[in-house]
Amino acid sequence: MTSTTAPTRVCFQLLVKPELLDEYIARHTPVWPEMLEEIAASGRRNYSLFLGEGGRLIGYYETDDDEAAQAYLTASAVAAKWEAEMGRFFIGLDGRPDQAATPLAEVFNLGAQLDAARAATPSTPNESTAS
């Protein structure tokens, strides 16, 4: 599906149990091929996970329709199996990790601010080429 609007950027946070960090990393190197295909089929792209100190996990992806992507994964038997296995890795999580992660508010985006700044600045003809 091609969209004429900017994609939705989604960032979320989870906390991995410190005693399970090595196993969590091993489960993602690599992720099941069929789960990778389901994520892509849902419409999520540029999906990354970043692991910080103390098990702080930050995830990021882009999508044209996050509600549709979420619904697709909710209905997926592959995703349900993956999430059921992954749930034990997280602290303070109630529900499937893909549905219960804490979303983060975007407060800055370089591309969006550059576009806005450029749109607000009137362009002036290049004086060296004026006749």
Rank of each mutant, 00 (worst) to 15 (best):
K81P: 03
E127D: 05
S123F: 11
Y72S: 06
A84R: 12
K81Y: 09
Y72N: 02
A80N: 15
A120L: 12
A80P: 02
G87E: 09
Q99E: 13
W82R: 02
A71C: 12
L110Y: 12
E83G: 02
F89M: 01
A130S: 09
S76F: 08
T124N: 04
R118V: 08
G92M: 13
Q113L: 11
A130D: 05
A116G: 07
L110M: 13
G95V: 04
I91V: 15
P97V: 05
A75E: 15
A71M: 10
L114H: 10
A130E: 11
T129R: 10
A79C: 11
T74H: 15
D115V: 04
A130P: 00
P125I: 01
A71T: 13
V78T: 12
K81A: 13
L93I: 13
R96I: 00
V107Q: 06
S76V: 05
A112V: 14
T124Q: 11
E85G: 13
A101R: 06
E106G: 08
R88E: 00
A112C: 02
G95H: 12
E85P: 00
K81R: 14
K81N: 07
V78W: 07
P97W: 05
L104P: 02
V78P: 07
S123I: 07
Y72R: 12
R96T: 05
I91G: 00
P125M: 06
P97E: 05
G92S: 13
L114R: 14
T121W: 12
L104F: 03
V107T: 08
Y72P: 02
K81M: 09
G95Y: 05
N109C: 10
Q99W: 01
E83N: 11
T121A: 07
A117K: 11
A117W: 14
P103W: 13
Y72T: 02
V78L: 10
F108W: 15
A100P: 09
K81L: 10
G95N: 06
S123H: 07
A84L: 08
M86D: 01
P103Q: 09
E127H: 02
G87R: 04
P103N: 11
L93T: 04
R96D: 03
P103R: 15
G87V: 00
G92Y: 05
F90G: 00
Q113K: 06
G92P: 12
V107E: 07
G111K: 11
G92F: 09
P97F: 08
D115K: 10
W82A: 01
L110H: 10
L114I: 09
A116N: 07
W82V: 00
L93W: 01
F89Y: 14
V107H: 05
L93G: 04
N126T: 01
Q99M: 12
F108Y: 14
A112D: 13
A120M: 09
A130T: 10
A75K: 15
S123E: 12
Q113N: 11
M86R: 00
T121S: 07
V107I: 08
Q70V: 07
A71S: 15
T129A: 06
A105Y: 06
G87S: 14
G95M: 09
A105M: 13
A84G: 14
L114Y: 09
